[in-house]
């Protein structure tokens, strides 16, 4: 496999010929994908292009009808998001995947709760609330989400942006191999968006590659190392943000212009 634009390393996550149909709608149409170690890969495309479906296939939330996914060269078949998480792939879904009635701490640790040490935890399976709350508070402070008053507050009592912040903090806290962010700043204020971008760069500095879906071109061009342009259920091309302008990207994405110099998918 040749590696253009991705350095000399092998990709950490690849997909070949991914197809997903919902009845008559083809959300993914023989889509290819690769993510290289340590990079920020932006995925852009029109509404309904199939970006969310693509990352859901990569994170085990959707089982593709056809195609192959490899993590570090090994073929993988995730049956559920839990499987992907066990392999270190963390995702912020566009819908955020929060339980509104439960607290912030409960949500951050959903499916990986900490238990009390000793008897209470082993025998009675008691949750270690103080510990979970402490870690949750720490992670939120790192994101600068100080306006959250109470870590035991139900998620439904947070604003849309605060909820998104919690979801991003959850992924950043637990992702060890790949972090996937599906429009993580869509509901965020100017300042909170900036914090999330800083966090993305922090995560990159920790050596963890990131897939970032966003409709915000300035953000994409600011942080991305490569840009995967998605159109009609497949990868149209991958461009280097240093060699193309935002207008070019938008033109490719909407079909106003066809990429010639860019690597064809």
């Amino acid at each position: 496999m040749d590696q253009k634009g991705g350095g000399v390393m092998d990709p950490i996550l690849t997909a070949r010929g991914l197809t997903k149909r919902y009845g008559k709608v083809t959300a993914l149409d023989h889509c290819d994908f690769e993510l290289y170690p340590g990079e920020i890969l932006a995925v852009i495309g029109d509404n309904g292009a199939g970006k969310s479906t693509l990352i859901k296939a990569l994170s085990g939330a959707v089982i593709p009808d056809e195609g192959e996914i490899r993590l570090e060269g090994q073929p993988i078949n995730f049956a559920s998001p839990l499987d992907a998480r066990a392999k270190g792939i963390e995702t912020v879904y566009q819908t955020l995947a929060m339980s509104p009635a439960l607290s912030i701490a409960d949500n951050m640790f959903m499916g990986r709760e900490l238990r009390r040490p000793g008897m209470m935890g082993k025998l009675f399976r008691m949750l270690d609330r103080p510990q979970m709350e402490r870690i949750a508070r720490e992670k939120l402070s790192e994101l600068g989400l100080m306006t959250i008053q109470d870590i035991n507050q139900a998620v439904e009592s947070l604003s849309g942006g605060q909820r998104q912040g919690v979801a991003v903090a959850r992924a950043a806290a637990f992702g060890s191999k790949v972090i996937i962010l599906d429009e993580p700043t869509a509901a965020l204020g100017v300042k909170e968006s900036r914090r999330v971008l800083e966090l993305i760069l922090d995560v990159k500095a920790r050596g963890i590659p990131i897939i970032l879906i966003s409709h915000n071109m300035p953000h994409v061009f600011e942080v991305a190392d490569r840009i995967h342009i998605h159109r009609l259920g497949r990868r149209l091309c991958v461009i280097d943000p240093k060699q193309y302008t935002m207008s070019d990207a938008v033109a490719f994405m909407t079909g106003a212009k066809l990429p010639e110099g860019a690597e064809a998918a």
Partner: peptide
């Protein structure tokens, strides 16, 4: 509780 609240969200968040 999570399943009762929103089963799809619970599934994505790692609940069986």
């Amino acid at each position: 509780y999570a399943v009762g609240d929103d089963p799809d969200a619970a599934e994505l968040a790692g609940v069986k």
